[in-house]
Design a protein around this nucleic acid. Structure first.
Lengths: 202, 202
DNA sequence: GTCTATATTGTGATAGAC
DNA sequence: GTCTATCACAATATAGAC
């Protein structure tokens, strides 16, 4: 990796702060209700300055998603459990914790402008492919191990796991106020992984 | 039920048409991206006329949700399978079919204005209570039958079933284009109900 | 109750000085 | 690259004639 000049480092730190704010606001209010004014105020700079770093609101959201996928890849690569199903459960648990802590950015799947921007973002696509392939391998392995139903197409299992990132169930249970975050995560995780298991014969 | 005058019937039909349009647009674009202009154009009346029927965009969305819950209650009441778990699966299958057909209205859970409007809507709350209580009874029965894990709080199962209404997995699988709607619904349903099952001992 | 036309506001994005 | 000030426009909501 090339050395960065002091100027470039300052720039990098500033942009990290922006993306962190965007991440938090996306988790809190979602893309449509998050305003660029809010982001600027949260970072503590003028809106026009924001636009010198990122050309559009969509680009801000994309940067937050790239950040999330980088964290995800890092978590995926750090898994060392022997059984593939345990590695899958561990990554899913991490995502659920992020979500229940209010740090999981969420994007509307229906916004076509945003979709187009993401699909044009090479960093985003590469990371998504990377993570998907790794998880896909684990799923196939878990099917061979008898931990995931072999009759299920791997992509069904993959999407089911990805979908935990925007599962509304944790938030509903948390709103009830009767259970700890830990307990909620474990229940949702158990229901998720249990759903992928092979059905008992008979 | 009181007889309606001709005038009132016309009004009723018009409002049904409005709510049906709102339902479709909510399913297609979601609340934030749906504009009142679109609704008016879709129904074929002027926007100002729309506002004579419904006082706000939020009220339009609420009416669509009431309509959905009325349909849900009707489906719930028509269930006659012997086992509670089969009745639960059948209702969930209906919701998944509605969703994959693009007829399931979806609201952002983060919009506080919309939340407040819904929580102030007695018809909505009554229907929600009604449906929840009935499904809750079935869940408790299914736990007694050994079809749902008795260690799971009934509300976890209830929310898990409710969440199928906004599950992104069917849309992702449909976008892949490799499987029929029927096949997708059956997989997602199976994973859902399997997840609630008791874990095998050992 | 329906229409056309308009008021009002919120917000994404930019101009131009420094 | 940062700021203040402003534009441009979309979208909710309403006025007022018929």
């Amino acid at each position: 990796m090339a050395r960065l000049s002091f100027r470039e480092q300052v720039l990098r730190v500033r942009e990290d702060a922006i993306v962190a704010s965007v991440n938090r606001l996306l988790a809190e209010k979602g893309f449509d209700l998050m305003t660029v004014d809010e982001v600027a105020a949260d970072v503590g700079i003028a809106k026009a300055s924001l636009y010198k770093h990122f050309p559009s609101k969509e680009a801000l959201a994309a940067a937050a998603m790239v950040r999330l996928l980088e964290q995800t890849r890092s978590i995926v690569e750090s898994q060392d459990a022997e059984r593939a199903v345990d590695r899958l459960a561990s990554v899913t648990r991490w995502a659920l914790h992020l979500q229940i802590a209010g740090e999981m950015p969420s994007l509307p799947s229906q916004n076509s402008t945003l979709r187009a921007e993401l699909l044009a973002n090479k960093a985003y696509l590469d990371l998504l492919m990377d993570v998907s392939e790794r998880l896909g391998e684990w799923i196939v392995q878990a099917q061979a191990d008898g931990d995931i139903d072999p009759a299920l197409p791997p992509e069904v299992a993959l999407y089911t796991i990805f979908a935990r990132a925007c599962d509304p169930v944790p938030a509903y249970l948390k709103a009830g106020g009767r259970y700890s975050d830990e307990q909620i995560v474990e229940w949702v995780l158990a229901v998720c992984m249990n759903g992928l298991r092979p059905r008992a014969a008979g």
